[in-house]
Design a protein around this nucleic acid. Sequence first.
DNA 1: TCTCAATTTGTAATGATTACAAACCAATCA
DNA 2: TGATTGGTTTGTAATCATTACAAATTGAGA
Lengths: 146, 146
Amino acid sequence: MSTNKAGDDMHSNHVGEFLKDNGIKPSYQRIKIYEYLMGSMTHPTVDTIYNALCDQIPTLSKTTVYNTLKVFIDKGIAMAITIDDNEVRYDTRTDVHGHFKCEKCNEIYDFKANIELEDEDVLRGFEITKQQLFFYGVCKHCSEAK
Amino acid sequence: MSTNKAGDDMHSNHVGEFLKDNGIKPSYQRIKIYEYLMGSMTHPTVDTIYNALCDQIPTLSKTTVYNTLKVFIDKGIAMAITIDDNEVRYDTRTDVHGHFKCEKCNEIYDFKANIELEDEDVLRGFEITKQQLFFYGVCKHCSEAK
DNA sequence: TCTCAATTTGTAATGATTACAAACCAATCA
DNA sequence: TGATTGGTTTGTAATCATTACAAATTGAGA
Ligand SMILES: [Mn+2]
Ligand SMILES: [Mn+2]
Ligand SMILES: [Zn+2]
Ligand SMILES: [Zn+2]
C-alpha cells in the first residue's frame, strides 16, 4: 500500500539524514541495520541482526554487519555491550546506563544508576572515556514463573 | 636456604588449607595457580598465568589453567573479569569492586564505587547475583607521560 | 559514459576457549 | 605390597565469533 511505502521512505529518509549528520554515508545496508538496531529493544548480536535482515537484503554479508557496527561505534551513534562472554551485543542508546542480564531467559534490561567513587583518590587524574555497568541474575518474570 | 624452603612450604600449606576449606583438593598445580593469581595485582589472563608458571611446572597444560580457574570461580574464591573483548582476566578479590582499564598501557586498576539505582522500580523483584563495573580511558601515569 | 573512491561481499585466517579421551596420580583396600 | 578407583592433568582436535584481505559492486561527479 502506498501509504505504508511513503511512511517507510520518510522513516528511511529520516534515518538517512541522521546518519549523514553523523558523518556516515547512508547506504541501503547502513540504513536498514541502524533501523533494525534502533527498533530492537533486545540489544541484538551480529548474528541476530544478520538473520533478521537476510530477507530484506538477500545479498547482505555478515562482514558488512560487522563493518557497519564498527562505523556506528566510531561515530558515536552506537555502543558495544560485552555483557556476554561469547558474543557482543549492540545498542543505539549511547547515554550511560546499566544492563541487567537474566541468566534464565537471557534477556537484557536497561536501567539507570548513579555511580559514585568511594575512594575519590584512586582514579584522580584518570581520564574516563567509557563506562560499562553489568548486573547478572534472574529477572522478575523468570523468578515469578518459578 | 632452609628458611626460605620452610617459608615457601608454610605459605603453600596455608594456601592448601585455604583451598581445602573451600572444597577444593589442593593439588600442586592448583596451589601454584592460586598463589600466582593472588600474588599478582595485574588481573592476569590464562596465557599470562600459563607462561608465568611454565618454568616451575614444566608439564603444565593450558587446559589445566582453564579447568582450575573454573573450579576457583565455581567455589567462589576467584572471579572472571571480562573487561577485554578478546580474553578473560582473573581476580582473587571477590568483593564487589570496579575495574579501570587504561587503553594506553592496558593496565587494570581496582577501585571502589557505590552504585545506587536511579529508578528503583526498574529492577524491583530482580535477583542480582553478580555485578561488573568497568571504566575505560587513560590512566594518570600515561596522561602525564604525554 | 568514464573514473575513482567508498562500500559491500565472500572466503580464508586468527585465536581464545571448549570438548574429549588418554595418561597420571594419590588414596584406599585386599 | 599390589590392585582398584575416582579425581586430576595433559595434549590434541574441534568450535566459533571475529578479523583480514582482496575482488566485486556501487554511486556520485567529471
Ligand atoms: Mn541498553
Ligand atoms: Mn580487581
Ligand atoms: Zn528472565
Ligand atoms: Zn596507562
